[in-house]
Computed example of a mutant assay.
Amino acid sequence: MAALRVLELYSGIGGMHQALRESCTYAEVVAAVDVNTLANDVYKHNFPNTPLWAKTIEGITLQEFDRLSFDMILMSPPCQPFTRIGLQGDVADPRTKSFLYILDILPRLQKLPKYLLLENVKGFESSSARNQLLQTLTTCGFKYQEFLLSPTCLGIPNSRLRYFLIAKLHHEPFSFQSPGQILTRFPDQDPEDLLKEKVADKVGETSFSLSSEEKNLDPNIGPDCSSKKNLPKGAFLFKLETVEEMERKCDQDNDSSIQMLKDFLEEENEEMSQYFLPPKSLLRYAFLLDIVKPICRRSTCFTKGYGHYVEGTGSVLQTAVDVELESVFKHIDNLPEEEKLMKLSTLKLRYFTPREIANLHGFPLEFGFPEKVTVKQCYRLLGNSLNVHVVAKLISILLE
C-alpha cells in the first residue's frame, strides 16, 4: 500500500505533522509551507527530511500544486482575522488572502485530495471565510463535519477551545455526520461529557473589575467550595472572580476524568528561577492571575503573549503548594506595598516553562527547539500552535 501523500499548509512548528505521526497513519508529508522563519527553523529541527517551502501560499502555482499530487491537506490558516480579541476583519483582512487563494485553487486541481483537515480559533465558525470554505467543499463533492473541541475532552488539563473541520471526497457521509451542526465532542464520546466541556472552557474567559463595595465583602471567604455557596449570585471572592467562576474551577478540579497538572510539569530545579514572576508583575496583576497548583486539573489557554504579557495569556503555577491563597489575599489591599509583595512572594508563583506547555499541547519529549530560540520565542511559537492529541484523534476519525 502506498503512503498517503500529505500537504501541510501554514505548517508552523509542525503540530499537524506531529499529529499525523501520532495517529499512526502510513503517510508522507510531501511539502510543508510557511513563511515564518523562526517556526521553519523549529520545523526543520524536528522534521529534517520533510521538504519545507519557505514561501507564501499565493506564490505557489496551480502547476506546482498539481505536481505534488497530494491525497490530504492539513492546514491551520492565520487566526487573527477571526479571533474574539482581534479586529475580526474576516475576508477583508489581508491575512485571509492566502486562504482564499487555496479555495480558488482547490476546484481547479487535476486531482482533488481525498481528505482535508482545518484548524482555527473559535469565531471562525461565524465568519464569511468559513461560509466560502463550505461552499467550495460542497461544489467539489466533499462531505464534511465541523467541531468545536478542547483538550479537556481528552482528559488534558488545559482549556484551548478551537474550531476544526474534517472533510472527505466520498459519496457516503461520515457515520456520525450531523449536517448543519457543529459537534462539541468526539463521535465516540459519552454525551454527558458535553457538559464537562462547556464548564471547562468557560474558565478564564471572563474579565472582572472590582468595585469599592465588592472589596468590602467578607475577606474570610476563599476558594473552598463549601464556603462560597452562601454568597449571593454574582458576588466577588477574595480575588476578581465571581461565585460562578469559582464553582466552575472547583468542579473541574474535582473531575477525575481530567489529569492533574503535575503529570505535565518538569522537576523543580535552580533553572526554574528565571520563570518566577517579577515583583512588578506580582504587585500589578495579583488580582488578575489565574493561579493553579500542581494538583489542579485545569489551566487557561496559553497564548503567544505568555511570559511577556501577564493578563489573560495563561495560568501561572503556585509552587508553594501548602500556602493558602485566601491567607495571602485577605486584607492585602490595605497593606503597604512592601508587605503586600512579601505576602504575594510566599506563593512562589512562576510561569509554566515552554516544555510544560509543549507537554500540555501533546508534543512528545523528543520534540525540541534549536538552542538559538529564546524562551520568549518558544512561548510565541507554542501560543500559535495547536493540540497534537486533538488533531491526531480527528485524523484517525477522518481516515476510518
Results as ranks from 00 to 15, higher is better:
Met1Asp: 13
Ala3Ser: 15
Ser11Arg: 08
Ile13Val: 06
Gly14Thr: 13
Gly14Met: 04
Gly14Pro: 11
Gly14Lys: 12
Met16Trp: 09
His17Cys: 09
Ser23Val: 10
Tyr26Thr: 15
Tyr26Asp: 15
Tyr26Gly: 09
Ala27Phe: 05
Ala31Lys: 10
Thr37Cys: 07
Thr37Pro: 04
Lys44Pro: 08
Asn49His: 14
Thr50Glu: 01
Thr50Trp: 00
Ala54Lys: 04
Lys55Cys: 14
Ile57Gly: 11
Gly59His: 14
Leu62Ile: 13
Arg67Cys: 05
Arg67His: 02
Arg67Tyr: 01
Ser69Ile: 01
Phe70Thr: 10
Pro77His: 07
Gln80Arg: 06
Arg84Leu: 09
Leu87Thr: 11
Asp93Ser: 14
Asp93Ala: 10
Thr96Cys: 06
Thr96Gly: 04
Ile105Thr: 08
Pro107Cys: 04
Lys111Gly: 08
Lys111Ser: 04
Pro113His: 04
Pro113Glu: 00
Glu119Trp: 07
Gly123Phe: 05
Ser126Trp: 14
Ser128Leu: 08
Ala129Gly: 11
Arg130His: 12
Gln135Asp: 06
Gln135Thr: 10
Thr136Trp: 00
Phe147Glu: 11
Phe147Cys: 06
Pro151Ser: 03
Arg160Tyr: 02
Leu161Gln: 14
Phe164Asp: 08
Leu165Met: 07
His171Pro: 05
Glu172Val: 08
Phe176Lys: 04
Phe176Tyr: 13
Gln181His: 15
Thr184Met: 00
Phe186Trp: 08
Phe186Gln: 15
Asp188Asn: 06
Glu192Ile: 09
Glu192Pro: 03
Leu194Thr: 15
Leu194Ile: 10
Lys198Pro: 01
Lys202Met: 06
Thr206Glu: 10
Glu214Ile: 04
Lys215Trp: 10
Asn216Val: 11
Lys229Gly: 07
Leu231Trp: 05
Leu231Asn: 07
Pro232Glu: 02
Phe238Val: 14
Asp255Val: 00
Leu261Arg: 03
Leu261Thr: 12
Glu270His: 08
Met272Pro: 03
Ser273Lys: 10
Phe276Gly: 04
Leu277Gly: 11
Pro278Glu: 12
Leu282Tyr: 15
Phe287Glu: 14
Phe287Lys: 15
Leu288Met: 13
Leu289Val: 14
Cys296Leu: 07
Arg298Gly: 02
Thr300Cys: 00
Cys301His: 06
Thr303Gln: 01
Thr303Glu: 00
Gly305Ser: 11
His308Asp: 05
His308Ile: 07
His308Ser: 12
Val316Ala: 03
Leu317Ala: 10
Leu317Ser: 12
Asp322Leu: 04
Val323His: 09
Glu326Cys: 04
His331Gln: 05
Ile332His: 02
Ile332Arg: 04
Leu335Met: 05
Leu341Pro: 10
Ser345Trp: 01
Thr346Arg: 03
Lys348Asn: 15
Arg355Lys: 08
Arg355Tyr: 01
Glu356Gly: 13
Ile357Asn: 00
Ile357Arg: 00
Ile357Asp: 01
Pro364Asn: 02
Phe367Leu: 03
Glu371Met: 03
Glu371Arg: 14
Lys372Trp: 08
Val373Glu: 01
Thr374Ser: 15
Tyr379Val: 00
Tyr379Ser: 02
Leu382Tyr: 05
Leu382Met: 02
Asn384Thr: 05
Ser385Ile: 03
Val390Gln: 06
Leu394Lys: 12
Leu398Asp: 03
Leu398Trp: 05
